[in-house]
Amino acid sequence: MNRKKNILIAGAGPAGLEAAYRLSMMGFSPILVEKEEMPGGHLNKWDRLFPEREAADEILERLLSRVKNDVNIKIFTSSYIEQINELNDSYNVILSTGVTIIAEAVLITTGFDLFNASRKEEYGYGIYERVITNADLESWFKGNGKIPVENPQSIGFVHCVGSRDEKAGNRHCSKVCCVTAVKQAIEIKEIFPHATVYCFYMDLRMFGRHYEDMYLEAQQKHGIRFIRGRVSEVSENKEGRLVVKAEDTLAGKPVKATMDLLVLMAGMTRPASSASLYEQLDLSMDEDGFLRQSDAILNGQSNHRKGIFVAGACTGPKTLPDTIHEADSAAMAIYEYLNRMTV
């Protein structure tokens, strides 16, 4: 095995960091390229993680420490891939900083963008101060900034914002929003125990282990009210409180409530800043904008392009554990590929 083989990893979020660690363990030289100043992706902005509410900082620190302490792994932050060209058995990569890299394989871990909630104009994000997103709330949980109201008495969570929404151009389910809403509803209820907390949902997709337990805990222990129906519009009354209109499809009637805070569960969309990279590599995307896998069941980390691999949310919404598993799987796929090439 050639220990000097470079593996370029586009994106130093959880998938990129995990894959870099695994590839280094296998004897390769992973090179992480991250457009942001700090590696870690969305994990940097999150406070605690479902379902056990582990601190996101601790998970990220564990991912980072393995990379930082490994001399085989190089990381270029505040950089992006400006040009990438296929050679015979490798890729020639030029970064925005002018650095040139020859890589025997490329792993795409470009992740996702959070849906721009202001596109759902009827919910008033960016118009009404008391409408925030799941990311804003998580940032506040993390100790950054403040929420727009000091002691909210009535709080709503709107599921599926920009997900499962033809009008927004996103038919897909973002997979993590239901359980994140339940987690955040519990957390905010713990901070404001006297507040009434509502979750407006289409259907609750509690697919993971312990998710259903969280859902039951939210109802039984915290009294969080789950209303099956979509919010139709949000407006502001004279006092600056939010007037939220929705449909309760179980009761079969419209509901209207005045709330102090509304949290929009913005879903996952394709990473817009990766468009140039995808185009240069001629990577196929599905209708939802996420990258296509060549064989999603048995060979999910491969792409139709030789030497190109994919992992994490760039191929569709995923939980963090799924992302980590895919990164490990991608490392194994790259190992097999390069071994085959050597033989």
Partner: peptide, 25 residues
């Protein structure tokens, strides 16, 4: 559709203040 400007623009140009009330839509 959600925050139409067609009349709001006239009101602004002619010196008025627009009221955004809950049942505006």
């Amino acid at each position: 559709a959600e925050y139409p400007y067609v009349l709001a623009g006239m009101i602004e140009s002619w010196g008025g203040e627009i009221i955004d009330y809950p049942e505006r839509r």
